[in-house]
Amino acid sequence: MKVKINRIAAKALKKMLAEENAEGKMFRIYVTSIHGDHAHYDLMMDTPTDNDEVVKTDKDIDFILDKNDENLDGIWIQYFQVPKEEWVITNPSKGSHHHHH
């Protein structure tokens, strides 16, 4: 499984991981809902289970993915500050639909 993350998202996520309540945790990417041909995604702090795969990125952040959910392979996490602050989690390999977080 693969996860891509843009530079500004990596910086924001690393800041969250540095907080005291995040010690020993990673970010889990998960499907919140599926509508027809596309899924909506979100992320939260969590710890891996036996059903998960820990995926390393080129930005030194590891993500937890449910290894049985094919909608998670190829996730792209982006964070934008302009025109407004927003998180965008997409899976280009599963269509162009995305979730603003």
Score class of each variant (00 low, 15 high):
V3W: 04
K4F: 12
R7K: 13
A12H: 11
K14R: 11
M16V: 03
L17N: 05
A18Y: 13
E19C: 04
E20L: 10
N21T: 15
E23W: 07
G24F: 13
G24T: 04
K25H: 08
R28I: 09
R28K: 15
I29E: 07
I29Y: 07
Y30F: 15
Y30C: 06
V31D: 00
V31T: 03
H35V: 15
H35F: 12
D37V: 12
A39N: 13
H40M: 14
H40S: 15
Y41G: 01
D42W: 08
L43P: 09
L43V: 15
M45N: 11
D46R: 01
T49P: 07
D52Y: 03
K56F: 04
T57W: 00
D58A: 09
D58S: 15
K59M: 13
D60V: 00
I61V: 05
D69C: 10
E70S: 10
N71P: 05
N71A: 06
L72S: 05
D73W: 00
G74Q: 07
W76E: 13
Q78P: 05
F80C: 05
F80K: 09
F80L: 08
Q81E: 14
Q81D: 11
V82C: 08
E85G: 09
E86P: 06
N91M: 02
N91C: 04
P92N: 04
S96Q: 11
S96P: 11
H99Y: 08
H100Y: 10
H100P: 08
